[in-house]
């Protein structure tokens, strides 16, 4: 269970998040939607203890991230970008993460297999394509076999096969009782994957509920999204 409660974040004089609250429940895939720069990544970074909130809280099973006993086994996170030094090999990257949480090296080979990177695990990360980088991020998130997954734009840069793989994978995770929170700006993709939807725009939540509730009278999620986000922004997307 992820609980975001009245989160406010200032950066300089700018207010990036102004009172965000929502929940991501076990057994469901929660989609976190919004245009570029709406505050999706900022929220996730605070949730993962990377940035400090100005006020409010983002809790994982009732605790801030830094107080988790074994973070890797509780939350698997894949943020935007590779999250890895370009000069290291993919395998070396996963190995130090595994080492930090006391996981075995065979687990590294397992996740490499799951995300389909076994063949390129010995290559420098700098040579990876965008899609391979995303897969590496997923592999790192899955290392500790966590009950909660937090993924920032997981399908960004993946090929059609990869997108389909991620979709079925996340559905399976949720159906076996895990919590999945993913951010995206790809509506069509999200519509087929998520159970609940949270829409954020200019640092404020503009919609929060099950997929059906959020779509409402609109024919698709995309239409609902534009209706909701253009109301208070005008023409800026």
């Amino acid at each position: 269970m992820l609980t975001i409660n009245n989160l406010v974040k200032h950066r300089g004089t700018q207010e990036i998040l102004s009172g965000i609250s929502f929940k991501a429940r076990p057994g469901r895939v929660t989609g976190f939607l919004g245009p570029n720069g709406a505050g999706k990544s900022s929220t996730l970074r605070i949730l993962l203890g990377l940035d400090h909130a100005t006020s409010g809280s983002a809790l994982i099973n009732g605790k801030p991230f830094a107080e988790l006993h074994n973070p890797l086994a509780t939350v698997g996170a894949a943020l935007d970008g590779f999250g890895a030094h370009r000069m290291r090999t993919g395998r070396a990257h996963l190995r130090w993460i595994a080492r930090a949480s006391g996981l075995s090296r065979s687990r590294v080979e397992e996740v490499l297999e799951i995300v389909g990177l076994t063949n390129v695990a010995g290559k420098r990360i700098g040579n990876y394509s965008l899609g391979m980088g995303r897969r590496l991020g997923m592999a790192a998130a899955l290392l500790g076999d966590p009950k909660i997954l937090v993924l920032d734009e997981p399908v960004n840069g993946l090929d059609p096969e990869g997108i389909r793989w991620i979709r079925t994978f996340l559905r399976e995770r949720a159906e076996s009782g895990n919590t999945v929170l993913l951010s995206s700006h790809l509506m069509g993709e999200l519509e087929e994957t998520v159970d609940d939807v949270v829409i954020i725009n200019h640092g404020k939540i503009v919609a929060n509920g099950s997929l059906k509730e959020v779509i409402g009278n609109h024919s698709t999620l995309e239409k609902a999204f534009f209706a909701l986000t253009s109301e208070n922004t005008g023409d800026v997307v």
């Binding site: 990377l50 973070p71 999250g83 890895a84 990257h93």
Partner: peptide, 11 residues
């Protein structure tokens, strides 16, 4: 480099 700090701090 390459945003490794995020991985470090989430681990």
């Amino acid at each position: 480099t390459g945003g490794q700090i995020r991985t470090t701090l989430t681990t």
